[in-house]
Design a protein around this nucleic acid. Sequence first.
DNA 1: ATAGTGCTGTTACTTTTTTCACAGTACCTG
DNA 2: CAGGTACTGTGAAAAAAGTAACAGCACTAT
Lengths: 208, 208
Amino acid sequence: MISDKTVERLSLYRWLLETKVDKDTVSLFSHQIAAMACVSPAQLRRDLMTTGYSGSSTRGYSVKELAGSIAGVLDGNEPAKVALIGMGNLGRAIVSFLRGRRSRLKVVATFDTDSRKTGRVISGCRCYGQNRIEEIVTREQISVAVITVPSDVAQKVTDRLVNAGVTGILNYAPVPLRVPERVYLENRDVTTALEKVAYFARKSTEKE
Amino acid sequence: MISDKTVERLSLYRWLLETKVDKDTVSLFSHQIAAMACVSPAQLRRDLMTTGYSGSSTRGYSVKELAGSIAGVLDGNEPAKVALIGMGNLGRAIVSFLRGRRSRLKVVATFDTDSRKTGRVISGCRCYGQNRIEEIVTREQISVAVITVPSDVAQKVTDRLVNAGVTGILNYAPVPLRVPERVYLENRDVTTALEKVAYFARKSTEKE
DNA sequence: ATAGTGCTGTTACTTTTTTCACAGTACCTG
DNA sequence: CAGGTACTGTGAAAAAAGTAACAGCACTAT
Ligand SMILES: NC(=O)c1ccc[n+]([C@@H]2O[C@H](COP(=O)([O-])OP(=O)(O)OC[C@H]3O[C@@H](n4cnc5c(N)ncnc54)[C@H](O)[C@@H]3O)[C@@H](O)[C@H]2O)c1
Ligand SMILES: NC(=O)c1ccc[n+]([C@@H]2O[C@H](COP(=O)([O-])OP(=O)(O)OC[C@H]3O[C@@H](n4cnc5c(N)ncnc54)[C@H](O)[C@@H]3O)[C@@H](O)[C@H]2O)c1
């Protein structure tokens, strides 16, 4: 099983290869990719071991083949289907952002309680009533959910999603959610992140 | 020096103590706080060691004193000043969210290029022209910046912020930014996070 | 009082993650 | 074709993060 951190970096490498490399660059050395990703060359090579792909000592890694190899690890056979719950400020921003990038992740449904939002297509994606979560998640076989509802309903929404078969959750509500063992949960609380940054920012200025 | 992860958890503990505990609960045991935070009691106690605060073996930790003790570690003497650059969908969502919570972090200025946004007060915070970044960051002694500009200008904006004295950056643009050693950088790329969640979601369903 | 209880603080250990360092390899050069 | 070069892949070492275990304490109950 590939680790957390490695998966994250693989995703970054692929993105760099696909978007930040000249069309006419056919291959790169570990230190070049590592520099773009701000990691050490050793780290990069170690990460790539998990994909099974081998570069050549004289040419480095074929950009195209490497990207394909990473895709082989990260992606399933068909794009993962994603639902987003809570089309507020944040929810809309995320959906419209994800629409912009073509991606192996498809946001196929969004949900809200607000009747001004439901039944319409917002930011390019159909918004359903919150009561239809189970129905649509099950029907569409949605495996990943993004939670951008107010924090007091986040746990309830989560429980329903998990029940309906979701196995991965990206949570933006600032509460630690409780999920069963088998469900992968990633929290993205802004406040925590900012407090962390502020702490180290302060330490950095204090040092001088 | 306290680690990355520990700081993050301390921030979470404090938040739990301040918002998720009954007014009449005066003290809690490590396992109670740990359960709320979804960490092991040992982890919690270990984290608290860094604050120097000691609980009692029979009463546990005083909610109030512990929160104060964490604050002593995380916060400086006065609230850190924060700037946000790029008042687009995401930027506005974040600013209005931060306004909502009273906090030791004060968003004191936002910046944009769009003349429909500059010069006005948006989501409760003054929005300045992007050309005044250096002036205002220096004058207000802003130490933390949140970057929500399009990714092609993110590096340029970052360089200017760093130059003006910012020492902590929370980056939402999906590019790995380059900053000097002394500046703390935290990236919050949605795509990477989602791909990671999707990967583990798939692994979790495949296992069965 | 005294034995018993159930917690904390901390040390020692385990696991995970990162870095180091170098043998092995493919090419280039003269 | 021998020697040199600059890379890769990977085992081994180091560092970081997390877990377990337990001595010692503060209290309670008898
Ligand atoms: N704005 C941010 O940048 C930001 C940052 C971090 C975290 N958050 C968190 O993300 C969440 C959303 O933030 P926001 O600024 O978009 O708030 P918002 O109020 O604009 O959006 C919340 C949306 O969720 C919908 N909703 C409410 N209950 C629902 C339910 N049971 N099912 C489905 N939808 C429901 C509401 O109708 C609304 O559209 C909040 O928990 C907030 O704390 C926001
Ligand atoms: N929308 C999301 O949820 C989301 C998620 C992840 C990452 N991002 C990234 O965050 C950034 C912003 O996303 P968004 O959806 O808010 O886009 P947006 O286009 O709505 O907002 C960008 C804002 O930045 C301003 N801007 C442009 N150049 C600037 C400059 N040099 N200085 C100051 N301001 C400038 C623009 O005027 C605009 O208001 C993008 O990089 C996007 O990729 C967005």
